[in-house]
Design a protein around this nucleic acid. Structure first.
Lengths: 229, 229
DNA sequence: CGCAAAATTGAACCCAATCAATGTTCGTGG
DNA sequence: CCACGAACATTGATTGGGTTCAATTTTGCG
């Protein structure tokens, strides 16, 4: 593992205040691996071997039941995942697969639990990380239960515009099928919803979305600090 | 606060291994209060003053947006709530109200954060509690996204039957409106769904649900250890 | 009893998924 | 450089799950 990557991980809130000794202990047994696109990293129902951290690329978390599948989250660098399962040493509730080629740091679950028992700063950081994740899922649940799919899309566009620097012009980095499932809808519905939002001043052509009238869009989307962050 | 109640709280996994000194510190500033039914205990958007623990009665967690409301969870004794907001000292994402008359233990948020910084056992217990809660929300999200409302009801009946001692005869302790919103449906739909489940051997009369054919019901419900616990 | 709240039933409507057909884009190889 | 195929995207038609509104029945309680 190269120094730049170690530094990247070291800078994560999760490891910021961990002692040098314990950090080295965690990293010494860690693996940094490259995966091609479309690889299943973990499978719901399995017991956790590693704490995973997306260092590069993107990863989708999903779950299946009765031959249906739903995307629960899409992760960008740098993010830990399946922390809760590692902490409790219980089976994964979600599966994960790479959406793009990706680089994943894997820290043995036992090492995480060991250091967590001995390093108070790490324990505290874990609580904070978990609390943040918890709130993320609650937001997702509210988004799902309190909004229509068109509203979810409108809010996603507003957030993505902010993320891309308020250019009122968004470039899609993931394909629309993936975006659709991220937003909890079918690809067909994403098409229809984008067409629908033309009434609110949205113009779509291929992988580019232009916001012509952000006031109208905001009025329709009704962004909410207790759902969106 | 009476000794029996202190003992009850002391026995919670969250406080089990906390030192006597720190436990006393937490309890000395805590308040144990009785509330009538229908009282709003916390309001989404407010900053947390207390960590709450349901000691008696039941409490519902809900959220509102654009004049719609959805129930996110129903809590029975003995359970902490809004832990994540307290840890991070960030606004509540949910509101809480009593469903019945209830007794609530309230520990000042600052005291929780103070002890958490000094007591490693408490910090560890918090991580475990939070991880468990996190997994609970993930299960709820999967339940919502991967099942129809009739399936959610069927699974709820199976779980409730187990909880009430496998008598194949369930008594409803909460009214049907509340149950409906807990299961993510309208009261009208709960009625229809119960009628629907007659085909699977469910007989409903008033607040009593009888399971005549549990094999059929299971076949329909398709319980799943990665959604239901 | 008699009233109010809760529960049920019916009808119309809405949102979203599915199925099917068509159009578009893009990478590959001739 | 063009032709082709495969995956992706759009559009239309249909269906289904679920909400809403309205009317009626049942329940619980003073």
């Amino acid at each position: 593992m190269r120094q730049t990557e170690t530094d990247l991980v070291r800078a994560l809130p999760l490891f910021e205040n961990v002692s040098e000794k314990h950090f080295d202990e965690l990293m010494s047994t860690a693996l940094l691996q490259r995966f091609p696109q479309g690889v299943t990293l973990i499978q719901e129902g399995d017991l956790p071997d590693f704490l995973h951290i997306v260092v590069e690329g993107s990863v989708e978390l999903f779950a299946s039941h009765d031959s249906h599948e739903t995307v629960l989250d899409i992760l960008q660098p740098v993010t830990t995942f399946i922390l809760a399962a590692v902490i409790r040493d219980e089976v994964y509730l979600k599966s994960a697969r790479t959406l793009t080629a990706a680089q994943i740091l894997m820290i043995p679950a036992q090492a995480v639990r060991d250091v967590f028992d001995r390093d108070a700063a790490f324990a505290r950081a874990l609580v904070n990380e978990l609390a943040a994740r918890y709130r993320g899922v609650v937001r997702a649940l509210k988004n799902e239960k309190l909004r229509t799919s068109t509203e979810r899309l409108a809010n996603w566009i507003l957030q993505e515009d902010t993320r891309q620097g308020d250019k009122r012009k968004i470039s899609l980095t993931i394909d629309k099928r993936t975006l659709a499932s991220h937003l909890g809808m079918t690809p067909e519905n994403l098409s229809r919803n984008l067409a629908q939002l033309a009434k609110q001043g949205i113009v779509t052509s291929g992988p580019v979305i232009v916001i012509e009238n952000i006031v109208e869009l905001r009025k329709f989307a009704k962004p909410n600090g207790l759902i969106d962050q």
